[in-house]
Amino acid sequence: MTRSTLLSIALFQAALLAVGFLVSGNNYYMLLLTQVALFAAFVAAWNIIGGLTGQLDLASSAYMALGGIVTSLLWMRLGLPPVVGVWVGGAVAAGLAVLIGIPTFRFGVREVWYALMTASLVVILNNLFRYFMGPWDFYLPNKWGWLYLRPRTYFELFIIVDVVLLAVILVNIYISGSKIGYYLRNIKEDELVSEAVGVDTRLYKLIALAIYSFITGAAGFLQVVIYSSFSYRLFDAGLAISIAIMGIIGGLGSISGAIAAAVVFRALGEYLRSTLGGVIPGLDLLLYGVALIVVGILKPEGLAGLFNQLRRWWRK
């Protein structure tokens, strides 16, 4: 990790906290900021499997929902406070991911098939939970406090989310600087070649998958806190796709790009929803789609490419 990465992380944190303080008086902006930061955290976690390893994982919301529901149920049924429960939730999500990952990587499922497989995992879990939970919404108990990761004010919730986001960023940077990261990049460049030179691609893909699903599962409970209820609908294929898309638009493998994309698009989506949603229905999503097409066609290296261009221009 270089000095300049550390500096940018510190700056990013300072900026985020400053914004947090500035809008702390306004619940709307505070909630929005919290949601944006949480979304960014999910995208940053996805970056480990998608960006660093190059696997098109579309099951983000499956791990998120699984972790969130397990944590909530542990709290409601067994009284285990979420501050402990999230670790179990994350472990369960990672467990499932590894269980499916072993045969999947063993049999060499990759590219579009890996994407479709993970996308259908969301649907399968959605259907199974639908079958066992029924259609009902389950409401979190009326208890608040840090112990339950469910503080009374949005500012405190924002702080929790921010800590998660920071942790995910550090994990990303740590992995990408480590030996594992080196192998993961090899896999991303050309899986067959790295296999040929003796890299245990299955193992490293599995490690990336486990870390990503653990973080996503553990943070899933925070999504439940924002919803204040949970149901099988948390297994949302659309959400998983949009998380992956943020990672892509951000420029695969670039953590700053991924976070920037998450922040920009989530905030833009909310701006369009709140300004235009009431006037022209669907326009926000339409523009969102147009943005995807434009970025995909004109700037396939994503926002990270844009950053690099700006940097070069600055140095001239």
Partner: peptide, 15 residues
């Protein structure tokens, strides 16, 4: 306000 497509956006709308 558009409630959007998730409880999250409905909550934002109310806020």
């Amino acid at each position: 306000e558009d409630a959007g497509t998730s409880p999250e956006s409905a909550r934002l709308a109310a806020e």
